[in-house]
Every structure is written in structure tokens, then in C-alpha cells.
Nucleic acid binder design. Sequence first.
RNA 1: GCGCCGAUGGUCCAGUGGUAGGACAUGAGCUUCCCAAGCUCAUAGCCCGGGUUCGACUCCCGGUCGGCGCACCA
Length: 585
Amino acid sequence: MSEAAGEKRRTGDRLAELGKRRGFFFPSFESYGGVAGLYTYGPNGAALKRHLEDAWRDRFTVKEGNFEIHAPTVTPKPVLDASGHTDAFDDMLIECGECGETHRADHLVEDATELEDAESVPPEEMAGLIEDHDIRCPECGASLVDRPVESFNLMFETAIGPGDSTPGFLRPETAQSIFVEFPRLAEYARSELPFGVTQIGPGYRNEISPRRGLVRVREFGMAELELFVDPARNEPPLSSVAAVQLRLYPIDAQAADGKSYRNVTVEEALERNIIQNQWVAYYVGLARQWYDRIGIDPDRLRFRQHQAGERAHYATDCWDAEVEIDGAWIEIAGLAHRGCYDLAKHDEHADDDYTVFRPYDEPVTVERATVAPDMGQLGPTFGEQAPAVVDALEELVSTEPEAFEGESVAVTVDDTELEIPVEHTGFSRETVRETGERIMPEVIEPSFGIDRTVYTILAHNLKQDVVDGEERTYLALPSELAPTFVAVFPLMDRDGLGERARSVAADLRAAGFEVAYDDSGNIGRRYRRQDEVGTPFCVTIDYDTLEDGTVTIRDRDTTAQERVAIDALPGTLRALGNGDRTLQG
RNA sequence: GCGCCGAUGGUCCAGUGGUAGGACAUGAGCUUCCCAAGCUCAUAGCCCGGGUUCGACUCCCGGUCGGCGCACCA
């Protein structure tokens, strides 16, 4: 780790303290005893988070030409039934009566049987399976037969409206609220693939044991992009990221020795088939660039591919962005290939159509067999069976049109074979001109955890050095993210310096800067206060200011100072903020 | 959810069966014309509930919150 010797405390402990003391983040509801896994962002944290979200929006929404939406967090149950979350989030736990260990019942059953997806077994059947296979505690070997199987739902449940008519959940990911609105979003995008929809907002997980500050919480911010692509046309704008250097940790490397990273460019990753999907590679490259921009240490960042067993129920491939803090690797983003899992599920469960129309390059003519059943004949003949007969005829004509070539056609309805005169089916072969087909897009999902990213930015930028023999702590935040962009001080609060400084501060605020004003204590103390919350620039009004209208600007990281005219201050600060110039101390 | 450890001003800590002290921070003043200096004064605290006891911040039990390990992390 790059921290100076002498600081033995863990970064996590230092951040917890800094968070409370300087208003970045702290446990919520402490006056009432607190609730595990819920945090409040103080003024500095809220500003940092807002700037981070703006930076994400700029990169993944605006610069990519994607669309941002804002959907409810309260989600009716059928949506999550369709997406598979009601099943996947319902863990079945069983506790050993001897040693007290808690185990996932579905995992034990999978280990002991041929079942591969025991999670979908109803809880009431679980006990039977445990008895049939005489499953024992892997810890102490005691029998688990007759131990109660308890289900624990990781989603926060709620009721929508009075009574219990409409059960709902707080969304476990922002993604579903995008997928479920796909028909309208596709129409908005004029059905042209690829198009991307983003959303920044909270998701909820009723974690069994929240841990480590902002790393595992029960309400957490997410920034997600769902990119809908044509499976047959895999053409991301790769050239812009082809040369981006990646540190990849693919499945085979993890299996081999646990440490051999593949240090390659995006282009090489695709050429060598380390990353299979071009869109996934493109977004891994974008993410790597963006992490540079927001101040994440590239030496403590890697992209790790999920093992088959750890992938989410919807994913076909997934790469996590992971960062190192206090010696542990923490996931801060997942770049998943979700295939068409979600759209197919909603297409199946919902009334609407979750496909888009894709025109052929050239229209084609095809011969198609159709039926147009004569209900005037079928209705009286088959009574209430008639609709089923129609369904059977439609099914048959699409699979086996030859069956209609005789005098009559046979279909099976309710285990009964029925003979129907072909003349009553309206059978015909016609030649139609088709201009395209309906396809279901595949989904590429870059999904970023906001809170963990805020935490990482703090952890990777909390630095110490020595200035004039005094040790100093400072947050080397990128200017774009710093809660305060510039602090204004009068050297002394006397002789009119305070008045002048206040007017400079007011002018800078009017010019759109986020400004702090401080006239308390000596100048060095004020610099240190701003250093600790990451303010990149400090402007000091001194006696020369009263003479010639100049002030000093001081740089947080180098402590270099330069005198500039007050009139030039806004332009100079902007140039300093976006890196177009640096201070000549 | 299990096990171990912890909880004292805003923050970080010390400490005692007779209700507490430091450092830093904060506020006021003096000093100081550019990097946490010095001096004076001030504000401010024993996580919650029950038990033992004449008396509990201290001992015991339970809870809450936190750290670590296990499990979990769709």
C-alpha cells in the first residue's frame, strides 16, 4: 500500500472517522440506536456523490447518446416473478441442531443429489428431499432431517395501497424498471438498435449482515446502463477504446494460480478472446477510462470475470470491476452480458411485445400457409371446445401445413382426436412480401455501485505528506468531484480584508463555483481544513489585494501559490479545474 | 444468523462500585500579514433495558450498534 509509514490504522477506520467528523457519511438514525446497513451522506458526502453521479451521467448517458429515465423503486410482485427475483432472492436456510451452523438448504440438496437448480424447489418440498437423501450437517455430521427449513427473503416487502391485494417489493436492482418499460422505450428510440437506457437511483437488499461502512448496505445507489443490441450486428465504436490498458483476471487465471493477471489492451483482449463480446469489451474499456477520471488508483483496480457458479441467474458472462482497499478486493461494478433473458421473461409474462422490428436489407417473398377458421361451422359443431380447436389448427398449420392437403384434417383437443373438414378451416397458401422480422435484443449491462465507488474514491485519495515539517492529511480528489471547488480566506479578518474576501466569495458563487468561506484561526489551519475535505484550490485576500487587486491561489496537492488579478480569477480557476494549466509556485 | 471482541464530550482514547480525565476539534478573546504555533476562557460525554447493590458508567443478563471470523452477497 502506498500510505506513508507511521499510519497504522486501516483506511476503513480512518474513513469512518473522517466521514463522521467532516460530514461525508455516517450511520443513520443513531439517536434512536441506529440501524445496521443504512448510512446518511453529510454535506460533503452528498456533494461528492452528486458530482460522481454527474460524472457518470456525462460519460455513460450524455457522451454515449443514451437515454436516462427515472422509475419508481416500489415494484409490484408480478414484475419480479417474471424476472426471477422472487425465487432467486428467497434463500432457504437450515440450522444444524447440534453445532448451530446455518446452511443454505438448496446448496446441500444440490451437493447430495443430481439437482442443479434446487433453489427453485418449493420450501415445503425441501424437507422431504433432505429426508430422502438423509442429508447431514457438513460441519459436524449431525442429521438435518426434521430440522425446519426457513426461508429468508433478501427483498424488502411492502403492500401497495390498503389491504393485501397488491404485494410489492422495493426493487433489488434498477434494471428491471428499465426492462419492464422496454416497449415504450423502444418506441421512443424509434426501434433502432442499439440504444441504451440509463438510470441512477437506489436499490434495496435486506442483507443478512451488512459490513464495512458503505461497502455492504441495505439501501444503495446504483448507476446502470441497459444497452439493447442487435445480436447479429455486434458493432461498438471500438476504436475509441482499443488502446486502453486493462488488467484482466479471467476465469482460467483465477483457476490457475490466483494471481496471474492479463495486462492487455481492449483490442488485444478481443483478439486473444479473453473477452468474447465486443460490447462488453467496449464498456470495460470505457469503465477503465472513467475510473481514471474520477481518481481511482489504476494499480488497485482489476476486472475479474465471474466463475460460472457465481453468475447471477440472468447473466451469460460477467466482468466485475474490483478495487483493493485494506488488502481486500471489493466489487464496485459489474459488466454483464444478460443475453435476452429479461426481455424474454417479460415478453412471456406481460401483455406487451418485447421485440423490435428489424427490416431486411431487401424485402423477401415467402409462401406461407394460414388458416381462417369458419366459426359459423366450428362453433355449432364443437361448442365450448371451439376456441381450443382454433388454437390447435393454428399450431398445426405453422408446423405441418401438409396436413391440410386432404379432405379433412385431424387435431387433438383434450385427448380427443377430432376430424375437421379442411373447407371449414379456411386453409390457404399465399405468397407474402416480408420487409423484416421481429427480433429480441440482447442486453449489455454495465452496472455501477455508487456508494462503493464513493467509498473507494475516498479510500484511494486519502493521503498524507509533510509540509514545513508538519504532517498533513489531505484528500486528493479530482476537481470535478470535490465537494467544494474553491475556498476563500481573508489573511486576517480586519482592516477591510474580511469585507473584500466576502465579496470575492460572493462573486465566485455568482460565477457558478462551489465556494467555502473561512475566517477562523490562522491561515495554515484553514488550509488544512480544506485539505482534509479535498478542496482543490484556496484563494487568499491579503494586504496586497487592497493595493493592487490581486490574490493568491494555492494548490491543494503541491501547496504551490500564485498571484493573479481578481478579474482573472474565474477564468484561471476554470483552467486549473479542468487541467488546462497548473500553478507555478 | 452463529462465534470472539468492543461501545466514555463532535472525533480519538484513558479511567473508577460513591456519576469522570486527556488529546484533537469547536466557540470567544489576545497574539500572528500565507501552511494545524502559543496563551486565557468556554461549550460538551459514560449506547439502551432489566438485575445485583445503600449506591452501577463500572459487576451480571438481554438488546442495539460496530470490528473481525464463519455463513450469505441474487
